[in-house]
Amino acid sequence: MTTAVLHPGAMGAAIGAQLVAAGERCVWVPVGRGPASRRRAEEAGLVALAGFEELTTCEVVLSVCPPAAAVEVAHQVAGTGFAGCYLDANAISPRHSEDIADVLTGGGATVVDGGIVGPPPRRAGTTRLYLSGVDEAVCRVRALFDGTAVDVVALSGPVGAASALKLAFATYNKVSSVLAAQAHALARHHGVDAELRDLAAAALPGTPLATPERLSSAGQRAWRWAPEMREIAETCRDAGLPADLLAAAETFLGHWRRYKDDPDVTVDQLLDALSRS
């Protein structure tokens, strides 16, 4: 079976590498992608296709892209006449998951909703992939990941259920990092940052507040997290819940966009960016 990975960012490439290591043939479309994507794809063992039209030769298409591009990628794939199984594993709202299903099922494809929780998978026990949708299609995708480091959990729900769980978890997990950064920036301004760290270590061990060094990872991924906050805000509004906190988190993360995928960014740089704002 041939699986296409669109597009091999850090997460997509790592998932593709897991599939390749498990004996699957994985391909990607290099059209319009930069040298970093090409390097990740090569390292993961993905085979390049000549263009999107060749996706019709694949049984499965896996979409792992920035949230803002998820619907556009689905339209690109639908435009090829793809009629296989489409796994959308992006951090998007349930409503957008349903929109993607409408776009692709009209052409004969089957859509599975996916939500990835955890870092790019490199060892077992770190990364979960939640799936929802038609049982037969979910089982097909679940079997695809047998023998990989990705822990697959099938939910008994329609397309949109996996995305809802992913965004509910991200609401706490990612906004907690935003709050920790705000707290440390405030403490540093008043010269009590060391005391805050000590207090957090005693009262809230293991949290971003107690381990601010973890904020550097949040800074590197802020360019992805900001549009994810927008998706969560939309999901909250659809559920009749307030979205103010998520809108503020999106604005907050915008202060760190310059550090996109910067492996050398420091916590001090991130806090300085907040102070300058």
Rank of each mutant, 00 (worst) to 15 (best):
L62D: 12
L62Q: 13
S63H: 04
S63F: 06
S63D: 06
C65S: 15
C65D: 15
C65V: 15
C65E: 10
P66T: 14
P66I: 07
P66D: 15
P67F: 02
P67H: 00
P67Y: 02
P67K: 00
A68G: 04
A68I: 10
A69E: 15
A69G: 12
A69Q: 14
A69K: 14
A69P: 10
A69L: 14
A70W: 06
A70E: 01
A70D: 09
A70H: 10
V71R: 14
V71C: 09
V71E: 15
V71Y: 09
V71M: 11
E72C: 11
E72P: 11
E72V: 11
E72K: 14
V73R: 02
V73Q: 09
A74R: 11
A74E: 09
H75G: 15
H75M: 13
H75F: 11
H75S: 15
H75L: 12
V77D: 12
V77T: 13
A78K: 09
A78T: 04
A78V: 10
A78C: 08
T80L: 00
T80R: 05
T80P: 03
G81V: 03
G81K: 06
G81S: 05
F82M: 11
F82E: 08
F82D: 06
F82I: 09
A83N: 15
A83D: 15
A83V: 07
A83L: 14
G84E: 03
G84S: 05
G84T: 09
G84D: 07
C85L: 15
C85R: 15
C85F: 12
C85V: 14
C85I: 15
C85H: 13
Y86A: 02
Y86D: 08
L87K: 00
L87S: 04
L87T: 02
L87I: 05
D88K: 03
D88L: 10
D88I: 06
A89K: 00
A89L: 00
N90V: 02
N90D: 11
N90I: 09
N90C: 14
A91Q: 04
A91C: 06
A91I: 04
I92E: 01
I92M: 01
I92Y: 02
S93H: 02
S93N: 01
P94C: 10
P94D: 09
P94V: 13
R95A: 14
R95H: 14
H96T: 09
S97C: 05
S97L: 01
S97R: 06
S97P: 08
D99N: 10
D99Y: 09
I100A: 11
A101R: 13
A101Q: 11
D102S: 14
D102Q: 13
D102N: 11
D102R: 11
D102Y: 07
V103R: 04
V103G: 04
V103Y: 03
V103A: 07
L104E: 03
L104C: 07
T105M: 09
T105W: 05
T105S: 08
G106S: 06
G106A: 08
G106K: 07
G106R: 07
G106L: 02
G107A: 09
G107F: 05
G108H: 02
G108N: 01
A109L: 05
A109P: 03
A109K: 04
A109M: 01
T110C: 10
V111H: 06
V112N: 00
V112A: 04
D113M: 05
D113L: 07
D113W: 02
D113I: 01
G114I: 02
G114S: 12
G114Q: 12
G114K: 13
G114A: 13
G114Y: 07
I116G: 00
I116S: 00
I116V: 12
V117R: 14
